[in-house]
Structures are given as structure tokens and as C-alpha cells.
Design a protein around this nucleic acid. Structure first.
Lengths: 235, 235
DNA sequence: ACGAGAGGGATTCTACAGAATCGGGTTGTC
DNA sequence: GACAACCCGATTCTGTAGAATCCCTCTCGT
């Protein structure tokens, strides 16, 4: 009898087994079940999930291509070490890509849509802080960045940012959960301000202001996340 | 008896078979052997390369995760439409990443190593043009970009650029092969000049000049590649 | 220290079974 | 007769299972 995962057991439908395994392994990694540097042995995973070694191997290849695990030839997969340095590095890459995206989006953005998002952000800021506000903020953050992504006019850039997002969103959710636990909601207001700076620039169709605002937003995020996440290995 | 690939048959070493297959299939796609929208049938590929369907399937998953082919559940892999627009998009992303890398490298580069590369570039420029010169130039291009990659101080950025490189190198090799066929080696001199501008900036540890030189280099590459490759679907 | 060898595990191959898709043909109804 | 629904079979993907082979690492004996 295979051990249950922390999440609900994924539906192992035919043709979707690999995808389900990717998600299951990913959540396990971010929940700390598999630690950095740990080897992911195909046979053990196969037993754990009650499947054969083939789809496990394929899921690991997919995770390897996305950079979540390291695939060493003839030595299998090991969970990537996620250090504070890694977070800085990923966010440095994300910064240049998001800036490029927002630069393109500033020339293409639909003012009506942007205004609607901005209204939502202002509505959020007027809300009493609390766990629900965090959830809404999370959604709004996704919405705004998704919209920029979609409006950047470069579908390859869009897909690259989507890939990075699986990484940084998992990280963000973890830190925001910590945040929630300590009932400190100051960050929400800061975020809202930064987001509004971006929407203002988009509505004004000012690429340079948009890049400036996005740079500030991500810089601020780096600083905050690194400060909150004391559970990460240093440097 | 498996048919020979257009390139030299890759070394299908144990543990590197998937990688070799990824490159081989990629090259074939860029050579037009597999056209956009065409289905890639695992069994056929297995026969063609003289391997079993297992590593083929894994290679297709890797290509799917990188976005070269579309993986439809239960319906296998189909070659993505690669248009001139796609090339522009990939190179736009590559541009911002390479610029970020060279900005970092300008603060870290080893003058001795850079000078050695610059000498090689000058030596190449003094050579008579010909197929061997193209091969050397290809190696030198790799060497310089690899060095910048390695010296950028961000290992995640380094791995991202490495991933992009499989894409654009396959594309570059194809266009250079076409070039070779028509015995037009003008591009080599232009490249050498652009490369020297980059090495000069690195030796002077001038990040802004380095970014300028890299931008010019990639812009020039985009223009050239798009002009040479008339076999790609437009826009 | 150093090399042979053992063992663990990755990688690949082979063979096969279940499932999804697609095309074509059949049947039933209007 | 026209047309839609249905069924069926071919093709191919997807996953299972076991075995063979290879690579890496670690240990043990010299």
C-alpha cells in the first residue's frame, strides 16, 4: 500500500500520469519532504506512488529540464539546493525578463483592463488585513503579472516567465504562509503601492516608467523575501 | 539498418543517449526534415536512430518541456511551427539575458583569459576564409559566450543561457551550413569585429560598453539570420 | 596509497497490455 | 435517399515488468 501524499492523491489517469507525478513531486519538494541535495531514487518513488519506474523517470526528466532538480548523467536526480543565493539569482533573471515584458506591455496594454486591475488593487488596500486579504493579494499579483506576460507581445518570453513563475510562486507562497502565521500584514500595503506604480505607467503607456516601477517592485520583493525566509540556507 | 542523419551520426553513449537524441532531432527539425505540424512517431524515430522507443520518448519529453514540440496527451508530439517571429522572440529573450550576463562578467572577467580569447579571434580574422575557418569561428563563438556565461556570477542565469543555446545554436549551425554552401564568408569578419568589441569592453571592465557591444552583436545576428534563412515561415 | 571488485542504481532494451484517437463503415431514423 | 449516431478496428501512445548492461562509488585487501 503506497503512502499517501501530503496533498490529495493525484488522479493517475492514463496519459496524465506524468503531469500528476510532476506536481506531486514538486509539492513534496516545496513542503520539505525531499530536501536539497537529496537523491530522488526512481525505484523508491515508484513504490511510493504505486506506479512503475517509467513515468517516474519521465517526470524527473521534466523536472530536470525545468531546473527544479539536477539530472546527473548515470547518477540520477538530486533535489537542487535552494539557497538565498539561488533566490537572488532566480529573481535577477526574473527581473530582466519581467522588465522586458513590461516594456513591451506598456506599448500594448489595454487601458480599460489595466484600470480594472488597478481598481481591484485599491479595493484590496481598503480592506482590513487578514488571511483572506492575503489570498486576494496573491490572486491579484498573479493577475497583474499574467496580464503583463500576455500583453508583452512575445509569446516565447511569456512561456519563459511562466516557467520561472512555478519556481518563484512556490517560494512566495511559502513565505506568505509564514507571514500569515506571524500576523504581519504590512507587506500587503507596500505591494499594493508598487503594483499601482506599474499600472499607472502602463496606463500612461510609458515604457521607461514601467521598467522603473517593475525594477523597484522586484528589488523590494527580493529584499523582503530574503529577510523573511530565515529557514533557507544562507548565501 | 538505420538511415544516417544529415549530420555525422551522434555518439550514442550510455547515459548521454537522450541528450544526443535531443540534439539530433533538433537539428533535423531546423534542417526541415521534420516540418511544422508533423507528428513525431516514437516507433519511426526509434527505427531511424537504431534505438528503442524509451530514450526517444524521453527526448521528446525534453523537447516538449523546452517548447520545441507540442506534447498532446495520448496523441504524442507534433513539431511546433517555427516562424521568423519565433526566432525574433527567442533572440529577444537571449538578448536581455546575455546583456545581463555580460554586465556581470565585466566586473569579474579575468583579463588574461579574455586577452587570450581576443588573440584567437584576431588570429581567425587573419586566416583565409573557408570551411575550416567557419568551424573555428563556431568554436570561438561558443568559447566566448561560454566564458561570459561562466563569469557572470549567476549560475542560474548561466544554466538558463545554456538552455537557450541549444535552441539558437541549432539554428545558427543550420544557417552557417547554408552560408558555407554558398561560399560567402563575409559574416565571419563582421562577427570577429563584434566579438572584439565585447572583449575590449570586458578587458576595460566597462559594463555599459559591454552591454552596448553585446546588444549590437545580437542585433546584428538577428538581422543576419533572418535574412539568410529564407526557408523559415514568415512572421 | 592504490587498485580490484562488489554493489547500488541509472539507463536502456525487449515485450506486452491497456487506453485513446481517428477513420471508415454500418445501422437506424426521418 | 440523407444524415446522424454508433460501432469497430487500426494505429499509436502510455504504462508495466523484468532483465541486461553500464556507470559510479565505496570498500577491502595488498
Amino acid at each position: 500500500m503506497p503512502e499517501l501524499t501530503t496533498t490529495s492523491e493525484p488522479a493517475f489517469d492514463h496519459g496524465l500520469r506524468r503531469q500528476a507525478l510532476v506536481r506531486a513531486i514538486l509539492t513534496d519538494i516545496f513542503h520539505g519532504k525531499y530536501r536539497a541535495g537529496q537523491r530522488l531514487v526512481t525505484e523508491a518513488l515508484a513504490q511510493r506512488f504505486g506506479v512503475s519506474h517509467t513515468p517516474i523517470r519521465e517526470a524527473l526528466i521534466e523536472l530536470g529540464t525545468s531546473g527544479i532538480v539536477n539530472l546527473l548523467p548515470n547518477r540520477g536526480a538530486v533535489v537542487r539546493q535552494v539557497t538565498a543565493r539561488d533566490v537572488r539569482e532566480v529573481l535577477q533573471v526574473r527581473k530582466v525578463l519581467e522588465c522586458e515584458a513590461v516594456r513591451g506591455a506598456a506599448r500594448r496594454a489595454d487601458p480599460v483592463r489595466v484600470a480594472a486591475i488597478a481598481d481591484d488593487i485599491r479595493a484590496l488596500a481598503a480592506r482590513p488585513p487578514g488571511p483572506e486579504a492575503v489570498a486576494v493579494a496573491r490572486d491579484l499579483d498573479n493577475t497583474l503579472h499574467d496580464y503583463i506576460c500576455a500583453a508583452c507581445g512575445n509569446s516565447f518570453l511569456q512561456s519563459e516567465l511562466a516557467r520561472l513563475r512555478t519556481l518563484y510562486q512556490a517560494f512566495r507562497d511559502v513565505t506568505w504562509d509564514l507571514e500569515e502565521a506571524r500576523s504581519d500584514f504590512h507587506r500587503l500595503g507596500v505591494e499594493a503601492g508598487e503594483h499601482l506604480a506599474i499600472t499607472d505607467a502602463l496606463r500612461a503607456r510609458d515604457p521607461r516608467a514601467a521598467v522603473r516601477a517593475m525594477t523597484a517592485h522586484i528589488r523590494s520583493g527580493v529584499k523582503y523575501w530574503l529577510q523573511v525566509s530565515t529557514n533557507l540556507a544562507p548565501s
